[in-house]
């Protein structure tokens, strides 16, 4: 399978008043054509910032180093103007909050059409027509009338459909969806996931699904990458990681997810809080919360190593992870 996106040694740093803070450290991964990669982690794990960096959308005080090669071009080495030739065309992004991610003062059709005008050189009227077709395709009823509406006239689910339509207009090779279902209610979430599945298959786009919802991962992704405190701690196929996680953090995430048959039982949280990026623990950043912690974890940081079958994990503990031990 050919790789469409290769990210190597991505580092994202923000300069704050009292010094620099690293949000993403030494992140490397590849994305295959048509593949769906889930990027999982808690808030502050750097999962969103990594992809905002690739899109050139970091806040003013942020900067990114490393490589992000898309179709032979290193996106991180481009000037903003050069990057604009790729954003929206080869690589597109869908954002978390559909209520605020559309411009309230522009009609929906306009917000879609401008992508085609910019990247495909279409006339305003042709672009508007294509925009309407795309709205229809993502399941928006009365697409022509909706194109002529403002965002506030649409429900949250409809707006997220608009965001999806907007991202898919130029049939990008890579589609990044940053928590696309978080702001939606559960029934709409299910529809949205179904839509993602259909559309990425239709368009042959590789999908990066940034999420903390493991249910979404299970339903949609081929591979997953787990991030903690700015680093990838484990990656591999969704099946492998779900059935036999190698990293205690992945293990903890999976076991903290409640299941229907668990009713009446206590939740099993990962104890403690995610670390502050300004004051990371020494050694493995996860060791203060880890149920399998060993003495060396407190001093040395485990590298991400190959564990066979295309799996990688960053942990000194190589034995099987069992809940009994975790509960102690």
């Amino acid at each position: 399978m050919a790789n469409v996106l290769e990210v190597k040694d991505l580092n994202v740093t923000f300069s704050l008043h009292d010094g620099d803070v690293s949000a993403v450290r030494d992140l490397s991964f590849v994305l295959g054509q048509g593949e769906t990669l889930a990027v999982v982690g808690e808030s502050g794990s750097g999962k969103s910032q990594a992809f905002l960096a690739i899109m050139g959308l970091l806040a003013r005080n942020g900067r990114a180093t490393g490589k992000a090669v898309l179709g032979g071009t290193d996106l991180l080495a481009l000037s903003p103007t050069e990057l604009d030739r790729h954003r929206g065309l080869d690589i597109a992004m869908i954002f978390q909050d559909p209520m605020t991610s559309l411009n309230p003062s522009l009609k929906i059709g306009r917000q879609l059409a401008e992508v085609l005008v910019r990247h495909r050189g279409q006339s305003d009227s042709a672009a508007w027509r294509h925009a309407t077709e795309m709205l229809d395709r993502v399941g928006i009823p009365e697409a022509a009338r909706r194109a002529d509406s403002y965002p506030h006239e649409l429900s949250g689910g409809m707006r997220q459909r608009v965001m999806i339509a907007m991202a898919l207009l130029c049939e990008p090779k890579v589609l990044i969806a940053d928590e696309p279902t978080t702001a939606l209610d559960v029934t709409v979430q299910a529809q949205m996931l179904e839509l993602f599945k259909t559309l990425t298959d239709d368009f042959g786009a590789a999908l990066v699904l940034i999420t903390h919802d493991l249910g979404v991962v299970a339903g949609l992704a081929d591979r997953m990458m787990v991030m903690y405190a700015g680093r990838a701690v484990e990656s591999g196929s969704v099946d492998d990681l779900f059935y036999a996680p190698n990293h205690p953090y992945t293990f903890g995430l999976l076991h903290s997810t409640p299941h229907v048959e668990d009713s009446g039982q206590r939740l099993r949280p990962i104890l403690g809080l995610p670390p502050s990026l300004e004051h990371l623990p020494t050694g493995c950043a996860f060791h203060p919360r880890c149920a399998f912690v060993m003495p060396e974890c407190r001093t040395a940081r485990p590298e991400l190593t190959h564990r066979g079958g295309g799996r990688h994990a960053a942990c000194f503990y190589e034995g099987e992870l069992k809940e009994k031990e975790a509960a102690e």
Partner: peptide, 20 residues
């Protein structure tokens, strides 16, 4: 957020400022 969306579409800073 919607300015971030506009930039993600690659429409450029000028159009982002004037239109969005």
């Amino acid at each position: 957020n919607f300015i971030r969306t506009a930039m993600s579409k690659g429409i450029g800073e000028r159009l982002m400022l004037t239109r969005h």
